[in-house]
Amino acid sequence: MKIPFNLIKKHSAELFANAENCHLLCISKYFLMSNPAQSLETLHDIKRMMERSSRFISLSGWSGIAAGGCALVGAGLAHQRIVHYYQTEYQVVPGAIKELKLDLILIAGLTFVAAFVLAIFFTWVKSKKEGVAIWGATARRLMWNTFLPLAAGGFLIWHLIENNVYGIVAPACLIFYGLALVNGSKYTMGEVRWLGYGELILGITNLWFPGKGIIFWSLGFGLLHIIYGFAMWWKYDRVSVSDDNLQGVKAD
């Protein structure tokens, strides 16, 4: 189904900004769908409804920022733990590597849970504000399509850790997360795709810098999330106030 969105974009400004056409818009209520401004508004409605029915749009920018913050804290803790291991335990305390492994998995798990809970929380707040149910067909589809690549990657990483192949754990995390985002972007805000591309590039680059996992990890899960979250907040959440004003003007 092709909708002339470029056309909508092109004419929106001139139709709505122009005072003469505003007049036209008001009169149009009495001649149902009999002029271009009315058609344009109808197309806008159709586009909005198509998006609402197929995409999960309550994802908040704050979710990204919070997840990024958690990732940075987690990476910091992990870094400290690794430094501690090499400074005091390495080749001194037998079996310390096992403890390090467990601690790192624990830190990663807690980071994931914290990021996930915060992301859900901010999305819940946003959906509440917009009066959209958080759990529905769109949310279900989004979940399934992001969790599938994540679960597959999770098994691979589990297997890598079991076999003491640590060099590609961080790249694998980033790559599978990137794939999950690209896949999920079809069912939520399209911009998620760009975040996914970023994670993929970082993950693939990381393959050639095996010792620098934690840096790439913080860049990918920390910095990229924060940048993405801020961009989304800037684009959507911040605008919602002025959007209301616009509707007020139109109603006049």
Binding site: M1, L32, D45, M49, M50, R52, S53, G136, A137
Partner: peptide
């Protein structure tokens, strides 16, 4: 398609293979 509601229903259905009554009700 004169009615906005019918237009909304069609827009939603064209994006989904199948929708149930409650999902549509909430959407529109």
């Amino acid at each position: 398609f004169d009615s906005r509601i019918r237009l909304g229903i069609m827009s939603a259905l064209i994006m989904n293979n199948r929708s149930n009554f409650n999902d549509l009700k909430e959407l529109i």
